[in-house]
């Protein structure tokens, strides 16, 4: 059996890559996907904990996280569309209507 820490390290690596994507990319869609990557990395660690601790809490929480991620995706993309209709750009550094 693979030690628990390996799963958590994998989750940590994915989370960090997600953070990098969030901070470094210009395209809002990619930034959004970095957030989804971060959420998925948390899911992996939750399921791993759930398995090794022999408890179901982790899996249940993953269930809810997936549901929330779906809701967030819907709203986030709706916000993006609403913005795009007024201002046809999705590059982060071009969204500077409000200063600072």
């Amino acid at each position: 059996m693979v030690p628990l820490s390996w799963y958590i390290m994998l989750s940590a690596v994915m989370f960090s890559i997600g953070v990098f994507g969030f901070l470094a990319r210009r395209n809002l869609i990619i930034i959004f996907m970095s957030i989804e990557l971060m959420l998925n990395s948390v899911n992996i660690s939750l399921v791993a904990f759930s398995h090794y601790l022999q408890s179901m809490r982790g899996q249940i929480l993953v269930f809810f996280v997936i549901a929330v991620a779906a809701a967030e995706a819907a709203i986030g993309l709706a916000i993006l569309i609403a913005y795009y209709k007024n201002n046809p750009t999705i590059k982060v550094d071009e969204i500077t209507g409000l200063k600072g």
Partner: peptide, 29 residues
């Protein structure tokens, strides 16, 4: 536009912080 932009910024930073919260919850769990 500024309302759209407000929602956009609020959403992205809010979702980012939610991911952090979840990671903290996962570690605590």
């Amino acid at each position: 536009t500024r309302s759209n932009e407000a929602a956009l910024k609020y959403f992205f930073l809010g979702a980012f912080s939610s991911a952090f919260l979840l990671y903290g919850i996962a570690l605590t769990y």
